[in-house]
Simulated assay, not measured.
Amino acid sequence: MAAIRLAMVGVGKIARDQHLPAIAGNDRFDLVASVDRKGGVEGLPVFRTIDELVAASPGLNAVSLATPSAGRHALAASAIAAGLHVMLEKPPATSLSEVDDLAARAKRAGVTLFTSWHSRAAAGVEPARAWLADKRVTGLRVNWREDIRRWHPGQEWILAPGGFGVFDPGINALSIVTAILPDALFIEGATLRTPENRDAPIAASLALHIGDAAGSAEFDFLQTGPQSWDIEVDTDAGTLKLHEGGSRLELPGETPRPGENREYPGLYARFADLIAAGRSDVDIRPLQLVADAMLLARHERVDAFSF
């Protein structure tokens, strides 16, 4: 079967760190162009818009969008209208209605839409889901703390409207827990802390509910020193622990299971499989929880922030 001719839309830090190496390592894809207003992929044609890309790229099959979520709906809609399969970096869009509209457009056009959640592809996530499947959950704790200056240097958009703030990394934790828990997860309350000179939260505390159990999540974008991406799930059979963003699993009475970081290679393998099968994978549950937190939140203003 011929390789899928793919264009990268948005060639920023996440694209260079994760997407491009994953694409290069997958012979089911042939990266043929990029769309970016500031640069592009060296050695390949670079275009400013999807329309310019489509007009100059006969035989193009798919695009992968790694732009900021604000404005991504229009890009994805243009790609779908051109008959292209679309993979969306997380968060897939700025609102639930935008994702719903893209799913409807993809269905009408007969193309694949993939809302990718990279943390779900971490090595410990699927084994965690399997272990929890027949357990009764009695508690949940999420601690997701990282340094915005280290992981998003100078990226002003992330604290602007539609940028998600601390929920940009926090949604990774929500994508994991919605994948592994045997019962539905709900937000019962939230406190969002937003710098006085910004529009999106830099820290958040969530009160959670799972079945008949309570849980909590702490998200912090100002963590210095060691970074923390940890999930603990209490059950009637002991406590499951996921560390390092889901890559290391600890089960009661068992030796910890370290795993290789192959999140983005896993996503592109999944994208290729979906295209081959003529299917889409659109999961909005993590985004729903962020929206619920925003609706239920108590807001606090904190000190101004600068990169």
Rank of each mutant, 00 (worst) to 15 (best):
P127M: 10
G278F: 14
A204F: 01
A237K: 00
D101Q: 10
E52T: 00
E244S: 14
T255M: 08
D236C: 00
G154C: 06
N26F: 08
L174W: 11
V63D: 10
G189W: 11
W144Q: 11
E156D: 14
D17H: 13
L274R: 09
T194M: 08
E42R: 06
A122Q: 15
V233T: 03
S205C: 07
P252Y: 02
G43F: 01
H299Q: 13
R129Q: 10
P195E: 02
R198L: 12
Q18A: 11
V166K: 05
D51Q: 10
V35S: 09
L296C: 04
I50E: 10
R28P: 02
L274P: 15
E188L: 09
E232I: 01
A293H: 02
A207V: 07
L60R: 00
P286N: 07
K38H: 15
V99L: 09
L274Q: 12
D183E: 15
A213N: 04
L192F: 03
R136A: 11
G225I: 05
A2Q: 14
G238R: 01
R285S: 09
L44S: 05
E232D: 10
R129D: 13
G139R: 07
S57F: 04
E232C: 05
M294S: 03
A293F: 00
L251M: 03
S228V: 14
L44Q: 06
R105F: 08
I23F: 10
F305Y: 14
G163E: 03
A272K: 04
V282H: 00
R198K: 11
W117S: 06
T255K: 13
V282E: 01
F221A: 13
L240K: 00
R150C: 11
L181M: 11
H152I: 07
Q223L: 02
A7V: 03
D36W: 07
M87P: 06
L208F: 13
W151T: 13
D303L: 12
A15D: 05
P182M: 09
L242Q: 10
E260Y: 06
D273Q: 11
M8K: 08
V54I: 01
T235I: 02
L296F: 07
D168V: 15
R105A: 12
L53V: 00
A214P: 02
R248T: 11
R285V: 06
I284G: 09
P127F: 13
Y264L: 06
V302L: 10
L96N: 10
T94N: 01
M87F: 00
P201V: 06
A66M: 13
G189E: 09
S175H: 09
E218Q: 10
T115K: 12
D101S: 15
A277F: 14
T235M: 01
A304V: 10
G139T: 07
F164Q: 12
I50M: 11
R48T: 01
P68D: 06
V111H: 02
L185T: 01
V54Y: 00
A3W: 02
A214E: 10
D234T: 05
M294I: 12
N61H: 15
S64Y: 02
D27N: 15
D134Q: 10
G59Y: 01
G266F: 04
A184E: 13
T112M: 14
L6K: 12
G253S: 04
A7T: 04
H19G: 02
I50T: 08
V86M: 00
E244C: 11
N143H: 13
L208Y: 13
